[in-house]
Amino acid sequence: MEEFTDIFLMLLLVAGSLAVLYVRNLFVATMLLSAVSFLMALLFVTLDAVDVAFTEAAVGAGISTVLYLGTLALVGSSERPAAKLSVIPLLLALSVGGALIYATFDMPVIGAADTPVQLSNLTKRFVEISPIEIGIPNMVTSVLASYRGFDTFGETTVVFTAAIGVLLILSQKHVRRPEEDEVEQSGLKPAAKDHGQVGSPHDLIPHVVSKVLIPFILLFAFYVQFHGDFGPGGGFQAGVIMAAGFILYSLIFGLHITKKLLPLRVVELFLAFGVLLYGGVGVASMIKGGNFLDYNVLSADPVAGQHLGILLVELGVGITVTAAMLAIFYGFAGRAQGRGKDVN
């Protein structure tokens, strides 16, 4: 039965991706991509990767769709029809695909317990010793925050850098080209105009529903953040969910109200604070006489030290990811509002 579900989901994935390739309306393509992401999240659940499924559903199907839609509002959603059939890319893709499929026959059977991945010493350490050594039930969290803490620090920094990059690129002053005004006046770009009214005052039902929902979304984000040691969850997922709560608020009630509540300056401070908190835990463990990010020395009892270290580090990740997603959203939405004529 499980195999049947897997195969069904994977065939749907292929169908969805082909549809993404085929449709010429970019808005439709974005929604289909979101559906493909969600299917992938379901597939991850059946493949036992609950933490990954969680992240994929929140990020792939949620935040990245919002970002694509924000971009489409600025650049327009119609794709030019292809002038010619692209034969060379098709041949290239088919031949590379053929070679890769041929290579899959050298891969071990899926689900086998004697593959190099499963027999590695690392796997034994993570699965058998980590619950004793780190003392938390969710192995993914202990590998993420403790064994591979340095790597996660790097990834948090990448998120931080990307957010700064987006802010730098999108906060530059917009110089209008003369022909751009003509295009806009001739009404060829309805998308940009629609986006000028972020948070329409007329949508009663979204207003009421979101007012009820948003506190629970934020509460759920905290649950995911602090329960990540025991169940699926952690800083990355919690950060995205927290940001999604604020983005929902902004979409419904307007960007300017959200910016009053949480100004960009504060978001930028949080963005830096999260990374500093993560790095600070590393430095604190160095001062206490251990290696960088060696949580054992943070407390008299090594396991308690690990608990404390993971809690702080995950908090740093959560804060940075929330702030980064919000900063990116502010970047895109601010750009759209600067262009829309009737900003509410």
């Binding site: 990767a49 933490d51 990954v52 991945v117 690392l122 796997t123 699965v127 993420l144 690129i169 990116i328």
Partner: peptide, 30 residues
């Protein structure tokens, strides 16, 4: 238990992926 290591690698890759996608989209807007 299924292997936790690939999960960790991909979990972080997803979040880094959306951050880099955002950067690419910002460049497209410009």
């Amino acid at each position: 238990y299924s292997n936790p290591l690939p999960h960790v690698l991909i979990l972080t890759a997803i979040v880094v992926g959306v951050a880099t996608t955002a950067l690419g989209l910002a460049l497209i807007v410009r």
